[in-house]
């Protein structure tokens, strides 16, 4: 099937198998390997991307379902060499160790902070429940998201 998808601002048209998962389309067809695969049951969230502005697990969506959609992956988050505040927060607050869950975690946080710009710690922990991290114990991920929230609120 032919699909047209805009990924990180670039529009692509490809013929794909109907069963091709969006995450494989991004990784194998577009070579955007920043979106990771950590499971096969949609639990880990490593593959989270933004589809039309909302966080989705790209292992749970067929590429054909993304036809006509706008996708943002981790590679498209920084603009003009400027890190997104969430990316910056992860760096500042040591919100990652091995870095494998990080792209998905960041994309989920970006979506969450759009909806809740001033979250409590509990709200943050709840919001990232669909993303698993095995390295950090989440404490510094929470701090990273708090850092980003504050930075985004102050508009700098």
């Amino acid at each position: 099937m032919q699909i047209t998808v805009t990924v990180n601002g670039v529009t692509y048209t490809h013929d794909v198998e109907p069963r091709l998962l969006l995450v494989h389309y991004l990784r194998d067809v577009l070579n955007l390997t920043g979106t990771h695969i950590g499971c096969d049951t949609s639990q880990c969230g490593a593959c989270t991307v933004l589809m039309n502005g909302k966080a989705v697990k790209s292992c749970t969506i067929f590429a054909v379902q993304a036809d006509g959609a706008e996708i943002t992956t981790i590679e498209g988050l920084a603009r003009d060499g400027q890190l997104h505040p969430v990316q910056e927060g992860f760096w500042e607050k040591h919100g990652l160790q091995c870095g494998y869950c990080t792209p998905g975690m960041i994309m989920t946080a970006v979506d969450f902070l759009q909806r809740n710009p001033n979250p409590t710690e509990e709200e943050i922990r709840h919001a990232i429940e669909g993303n698993l991290c095995r390295c950090t114990g989440y404490q510094n991920i929470v701090r990273a998201i708090q850092y980003a929230a504050e930075k985004m609120r102050s508009g700098s």
């Binding site: 920043g34 981790i74 040591h94």
Partner: peptide, 21 residues
Amino acid sequence: VKRREDPRLITGRGNFTDHVR
């Protein structure tokens, strides 16, 4: 000191095994 590993990992430019083509 902030980690120098991080810039590549927070921008999706890590070099994990499955990324090598």
